[in-house]
Every structure is written in C-alpha cells, then in structure tokens.
C-alpha cells in the first residue's frame, strides 16, 4: 500500500473528531484501500450497535469487594512491595471488567431477543405461550422488537412471533395491519404473509393483508423488499406495492403517481388488459416513475422489454456502462447498476 492503514483513526473519523487535514487523509486512504473501507463499515456498525445498548449499573457486590480490598491493602501497606500492589490492582480491575461485561452482555442479549407489548389500547388478546397477538375492532397494541424497533398492531389484526433472536426477528401477519419502525442493519426483520415476505432493508412501513393474502405495502422511510418465490419488488420511501396471493408482489409505484397509472398497474398482468395497461403505464410515466419501469423490465414479455427500456432512456440518461443489450437480457449486474443510478431520481 502507498500509505499506512488508518484503522486507528476510523472511530474518531466516524465521530467527526479528526481535524480536517487528517480527516481528508483518512478519506483518501479509505477510497483506495478496500481493507480500510471494510474496517470502516465494521467500526461504523459496531458504534451504532453500542449506541443502542442500555447502560448497566455495576452490582453492589463489586463495590463492597473493592472497598474491602482497599481496606486490606491499607492495613498491609507497609509490608507490600510495589509489584504486589500493582498485580492486586490489575486483578481487581480485570474482575470488575469481566463482571461488568458479563452483566452488559446479559442485559443486551436479553433485550435483543425479547418481545414486549409496551402499549395496549382496548383489550387485545396477547398469548405469550403461543406468541400470538390478536386485536379486535376496538383494540390496538405496540410491540417492542428487541432493541431494533417497534411494531404498532392496528385493530382487527392477528400476528404471530415466529423467531426472536439477535440475528433474526420474524413475524407472521395472518390478517390486519402493522406499522413497523426498524432501526437495524438490513435483513434482520421479516414479516411473512400468505402472499410473500416483507424484508426490512432499513425502513419504516405499513403492511396490511386480508386472510386470503390481498393487501398493500406502503413505505415511509428507507427500503423494503417484498419477496415471493424468487420474484422481488423493491419499494423505497414514498412508494407502495400491492400484494396478491400466488402471483407474487405487484409492481411498486410512487404514491403521487397518476391515478391512470395506478389503475393500469392494477390491471397489468391480466390477459385482457395487459397490453393496454402497459401502454398507459409507459405514457403516464414521469422521471421518478422509472421505479415502476425498472421493475417492469423483468416482468414483461421479451418483445415488450425494449419498449420499457427505451421509455426509461427517454426519461433520464442511462448511466455509462449500462448496455441496452445486456439490460434486455436481464443481466443482473446491469440491472443493479441501472437501478442505483435511477434511484437518484426516486
């Protein structure tokens, strides 16, 4: 490497504590050094996790033992050598650190996996043993999900806790509506429905479904991925997506899209209205509706794909390195690059 690695400065850099010239050196180095970039992400992630950990008080027993050790040390002071004192202090400090760490881990681990109903309006049924939460027409609840966020459970909702562990929080929404606010790295929080699974990519969203699996996903912050048997809809803030049983998630659209476009998306996929619907979608699309068009690329038949791609290209410049031919072949890397560029208009 042409310069020294910057591992030791990463925490201070993320906290904005480095002076401007040093901060720039760190940025320059990180831009060229994959190892330091990876370390920076790890440090950033670790610091965010630390921010969320609750403070823990040391058990009283620790202070009693420290005081006793100090008293004893004072009485024997004249007989002890400097080396013995140093080792005793080191031992006491180590013991305190180990105990504090254990207590901290215990609390953090417990809170990371615990589900608590923290607010109840009306009289919802909360069956802990079966992990079911059910609200009637006059009740609602708020459920705290470990230490990563919360879920508001609307009236007439039936919800089950499937998994609750630090690396995975999974709910099953049988019917009704939930509003999730998650502040965790992507792919830690999942909500299963009859029609597929909502995967949190760092977000806030509302999801409703009936018992048959018909419903709507509306995202207010971040991204949500809705998946069913290999079909995926990526829904960013300000957009929605219909969910339907046995056919996978609908095409996402921005909530401020034209009513004609929304209606056409409802009809899209049916044999009678398919072609007409596609014409309406292409005609009504604005620049930010490339969200919808990008999803259509992989949902339309091959003969219509070129029309969709060309409509995208007419609305906004296609980035360098994205080839029309590869996009029409649905090359995954090409589509990813196209999506990342289009996202600047969403």
């Amino acid at each position: 490497m042409f310069t020294r690695h910057v591992s030791r400065q990463l925490a201070a850099h993320i906290d904005g504590e480095l002076a401007q010239p040093r901060a720039r050196q760190v940025e320059l180095h990180a831009a060229q050094c994959a190892q330091c970039r990876a370390e920076r992400e790890q440090v950033r992630f670790g610091m965010e996790i630390l921010d969320r950990l609750p403070p823990v008080e040391a058990p009283d027993a620790i202070w009693v033992s420290i005081e006793a050790a100090l008293r004893e040390q004072r009485s024997r002071k004249t007989f002890e050598t400097w080396a013995v004192r140093r080792w005793r202090w080191a031992f006491a400090a180590t013991a305190v650190c180990v105990l504090l760490g254990a207590a901290h881990w215990s609390v953090a681990h417990r809170s990371a996996t615990r589900w608590d109903v923290v607010r109840i309006d009306g009289s919802p049924t909360v069956i802990r043993a079966g992990k079911w939460i059910e609200t009637d027409s006059a009740s609602s609840a708020t459920v705290k999900i470990g230490n990563i966020g919360s879920v508001e459970v609307a009236p007439n909702t039936r919800l089950r806790v499937v998994t609750a562990r630090p690396g995975e929080h999974r709910l099953a929404l049988a019917r009704g509506e939930i509003r999730a606010k998650i502040s965790a790295p992507p792919r830690l929080f999942f909500v299963e429905t009859v029609s597929g699974t909502a995967v949190d990519l760092g977000c806030e969203y509302t999801l409703n479904t009936d018992e048959a699996g018909f419903g709507l996903l509306q995202v207010t912050r971040g991204w949500v991925s809705f998946q069913w048997q290999g079909i995926e809809s990526l829904v960013p803030a300000g957009a929605s997506c219909r969910i339907r049983p046995n056919v996978g998630p609908g095409i996402p659209y921005f909530d401020d899209a034209s009513e004609n476009m929304k209606q056409a998306l409802e009809n899209f996929g049916s044999e009678k209205a398919g072609d007409v619907a596609l014409n309406v979608i292409l005609a009504e699309a604005r620049v930010r509706d490339t969200l919808t068009l990008w999803h259509l690329l992989s949902r339309v038949e091959a003969e219509d794909r070129a029309r969709v791609y060309d409509r995208i290209a007419s609305l906004t410049p296609v980035p360098a390195g994205v080839s029309r031919r590869e996009a029409l072949k649905l090359d995954a890397e090409t589509l990813r690059r196209l999506k990342e560029e289009l996202a600047w208009t969403w």
């Binding site: 990519l201 912050r221 971040g222 991204w223 803030a237 969403w346």
Partner: peptide, 26 residues
C-alpha cells in the same frame, strides 16, 4: 432521496447528494 445512497444509515437524512465530474471525490 436518502434511498439513493443505498445505505440504511442514511434513511433518516433530509436528502443525499453526490458530486459529479470530480476525478478524485474523496
């Protein structure tokens, strides 16, 4: 929009921006 950054940490940002035409963005 914050989603354009492709980073979940940015989701609460008011907006995101990027530089264009800068050979050495860092």
């Amino acid at each position: 929009n914050p989603v354009a950054s492709q980073e979940f940490q940015m989701k609460t940002a008011a907006f995101v921006f990027r530089t264009n035409g800068c050979a050495e963005p860092a």
